[in-house]
């Protein structure tokens, strides 16, 4: 991990800007704050710069360090495909791929990921060019309200990679053998993605189909 220059980290930048400034580039106006009459605590309200790649596109952001990766995506980059269901790591709706691994983007700060390669549901496919997993979800009706769906799909893509990489799960019978692609394995591994509409049975069908066609 490349460490940015110290002076940048220590920098306490106060951006004076009118509240009505429109969003410019990837620095949302919503992060600008008035320097007038700021109480002592405001002195800590610095912004920090961070650069990473999202869906193949380099992004340079200047953020309140409190900004989660999830909010940086949704509010800073208008990538609202990644959903906020609970903001506390209890639902999985915010699942994205960070350097190829699935994580809850609500429980990490954007500034913690300089140089990272992030993939969101928008980076997997588009309405006119669906990723095979997205197409399988449509075919098997693996969703209803659609709110957990991007997280389910990102998770599903990662789950197949995890099984392929030999990472065991709670239901893997033999820890020292390669995990099998079974319904039980998929259900256990997908359990960090809650679907209150209850599309689970269909989601497992969708993932199974994609896994089968990959083999």
């Amino acid at each position: 991990m490349a460490s940015p220059p110290q002076q940048e980290l220590r920098r306490r930048s106060m951006i004076a800007a009118a509240a009505t400034t429109a969003a410019i580039g990837t620095v949302p106006a919503a992060l600008a704050q008035s320097s007038a009459e700021t109480p002592p605590e405001a002195a800590k309200a610095t912004t920090l710069k961070v650069s990473f790649t999202v869906n193949g596109k380099p992004r340079d952001l200047e953020l309140d360090p409190r900004t989660t990766l999830l909010d940086a995506l949704r509010e800073g980059m208008n990538l609202t495909g990644t959903k906020k269901g609970c903001d506390h790591g209890q639902c999985g709706a915010c699942t994205v791929l960070l350097d190829g691994r699935r994580i809850n983007s609500c429980l990490t700060l954007a500034v913690m990921h300089p140089g990272a390669d992030i993939t969101t549901v928008e980076g997997l496919g588009t309405p006119d060019r669906l990723h095979p997993m997205q197409a399988a979800f449509v075919k098997h009706d693996g969703y209803q309200c659609g709110y957990c769906t991007p997280g389910q799909i990102c998770s599903a893509v990662a789950v197949l990679a995890e099984i392929e990489a030999g990472i065991p799960s709670h239901v893997t019978t033999d820890l020292n053998a390669k995990p099998q692609l079974t319904g039980a394995e998929l259900r256990e591994r997908m359990s960090g993605n809650i679907c209150r509409c209850g599309a689970y049975s269909n989601i497992v069908d969708a993932i199974t189909e994609v896994a089968g066609s990959k083999a």
């Binding site: 990538l79 609202t80 495909g81 990644t82 959903k83 969101t120 549901v121 928008e122 997997l124 496919g125 588009t126 309405p127 006119d128 669906l130 997205q134 197409a135 979800f137 449509v138 009706d141 969703y143 659609g146 769906t149 991007p150 799909i153």
Partner: peptide, 9 residues
């Protein structure tokens, strides 16, 4: 609406 829901759009 499936292709929108599954692509986050």
């Amino acid at each position: 609406d499936g292709r929108f829901k599954t692509t986050g759009t």
